[in-house]
Amino acid sequence: MTVGEICDKLNLEVLSGESGLERNANGVYICDLLSWVMAHAQKDDVWITIQSHSNIVAVASLLELSCIIICEDAEIEDETVRKSAIEGIPIVSSKKSAFELAKDMVNLGLGS
């Protein structure tokens, strides 16, 4: 499944990095500690977090994550938006909690 398809099906707002909407998404990783994400998230994972400063794009890009979903409407810095556009990592915003988003992803069949 692509990031674009997930966003369409779940009605998620893509804030930037649209060039990465064709990226493949295979799993989900949820965490707000960047070193923990670095150690455990896998390539093509959708990353759900409330962290929204620009360094999240560096983490996602280094690990080749498929996209970043900022949950619970956490405010997103302009620099994050700018960097995600450069790296082609979609930044997606959602009102939902990480748990609710995870349930949605399971229902879509992600990770199975």
Partner: peptide, 15 residues
């Protein structure tokens, strides 16, 4: 608060 400082940096490097 920025998500750093988990105390995983050096252990991750070693691993």
């Amino acid at each position: 608060e920025m998500g750093f400082g988990a105390g995983m940096g050096l252990p991750n490097m070693k691993k």
